[in-house]
Amino acid sequence: MRFSVVAALCLTLGACGALPSEGPAAISITSDEVEAGSSASDYTFIPISKQNIEAIKGYRPLAFANQFRGVGAGGASTLLGVGDTLMVSIWEASQDGLFSSGGKGGAGQIPAVIDETGYIFVPYAGRVRAAGLSVEALRQSIQKELVGKAVEPQVLVTLGEKLSATAVVVGDVMKPGVYPLPLRDTRLLDIVATAGGSRQATYETEVTLKRGNRSGTTRLEQLIDFPENNVRIAPGDNILLSHHPRTFSAFGAVKSSQLVPFKTKGVTLAEALATVGGLNDNKADAAGIFLFRYEDTNLVRNLRPEIAQSMSPHQTVPVVYRLDLRDPSGFFLARFFEMRDKDILYVANHPTAELGKFLQIIAPLLSNVATVNNLTD
């Protein structure tokens, strides 16, 4: 009888090699093959250090700028197009001229809109081709048509709204609508400001620019922090502003696993840990604090140049950062490491916590063994 109970206990011990857990152990994440950046792993392991924090802070995310680089003139064309509004002013040397209004050296003002065929109508000059011409070329064309009809005509053409070149701004903006582009260089922030700006905080607002088959999205604040992302606007662009609050997730041996919204523009790793109540004293491995996120390939090459050749050419790479709070300097590092949207914070269980789980599982069996031994004795 005693032998069968002991045998059952041995079988139970063998079956407990895999205990219930909230996630992988620290040793599973920091295995040698992962740290070496082998092709067998699906992510890159990077310890949080002072040098790495400086490299991350100094990195300029310009994927959005690169996508639209060299595309778009930055404003409307200097040539007139269908829909443009004009004011044609005509002066004559005589008060009795065709366009005189009774004043000395009288002048006549004629509003015009370039029609769908590209023409405008000017009295006594007839239909005049306007689309595809500059303002000066149109002025000369009208003046030439009036020679011999008006008294020494002098013509001035003023451009009103450049409705042949517009951009559409919609979404979480104060004044969504269709906006004509001026002739000057127009940037993405210019058109957003013209539409009244975002309804939400800049760090919670995403900007999507759609241009033909190209489409890119970035945070509104990155147009300010990294001016290269403030790309030129081209006629026909569609701009969408969307409210996307930033969040991070916390799992593992923390006091409260939860989805946490950003309350301010910047949140450090130390603040993130404090928000979820810190580490669970009974389970946490202070040397096993991990942060999972996707990073740009160029940044990872700077952080891990030794594995640059083995990296795939994708724009983003899954990265696991590790913080060790057993070392007092880890607390200073956590203060300067910035969290990002959709980061996953995971605290691994300490090996003794796994032992505690194991003992809880076999405790009833050990009690039964003791009971059986007492009975058989």
Rank of each mutant, 00 (worst) to 15 (best):
R184N: 10
V6S: 09
D190N: 05
D96L: 13
V88F: 03
G72D: 08
S41A: 12
F45M: 12
Y43D: 11
I56Y: 10
S94E: 14
L365E: 05
S141Q: 12
P20Y: 10
P351K: 04
M174E: 11
V231P: 01
F3L: 14
C16A: 13
A25E: 14
T268N: 14
A308P: 07
V122I: 01
F121T: 06
G75N: 04
V82H: 10
L163H: 02
G75F: 05
L11H: 11
K342V: 12
T264P: 09
V122N: 00
L156Y: 15
L188M: 11
F290N: 02
A40C: 03
N238M: 13
R60P: 07
A25Q: 08
D377L: 06
V169D: 00
D172M: 06
T186A: 01
A26V: 01
G216Q: 05
H244D: 12
T30W: 00
E295Q: 11
A18R: 12
G105Y: 12
G171E: 00
P305S: 10
G236H: 07
T85E: 01
G105N: 15
L223M: 03
S21K: 07
S28F: 09
T352W: 14
K263Q: 10
T205E: 00
G277Q: 06
G288S: 05
V192G: 00
G126R: 05
L159E: 13
E228R: 15
Q67E: 14
E271M: 05
G17R: 12
V372D: 02
T30Y: 00
K149H: 08
V34W: 06
V317P: 04
S242F: 10
E33N: 13
D172W: 09
G17M: 15
I362L: 00
V128N: 08
I29S: 03
D341P: 04
R301E: 08
I56S: 06
M1I: 08
T205W: 02
A167Q: 01
G81I: 03
G132N: 05
F248C: 13
F99Q: 01
A234R: 06
R69M: 09
A370C: 01
R219W: 00
A195N: 03
E54R: 09
M311E: 02
G106Y: 06
T376Q: 13
V320R: 01
T208A: 04
V128D: 03
R340A: 12
A286N: 03
I142C: 07
T78L: 15
G118L: 04
L345D: 04
V157D: 03
A308D: 06
P227Q: 13
G132R: 08
A353G: 03
F336S: 15
S257N: 09
L188G: 08
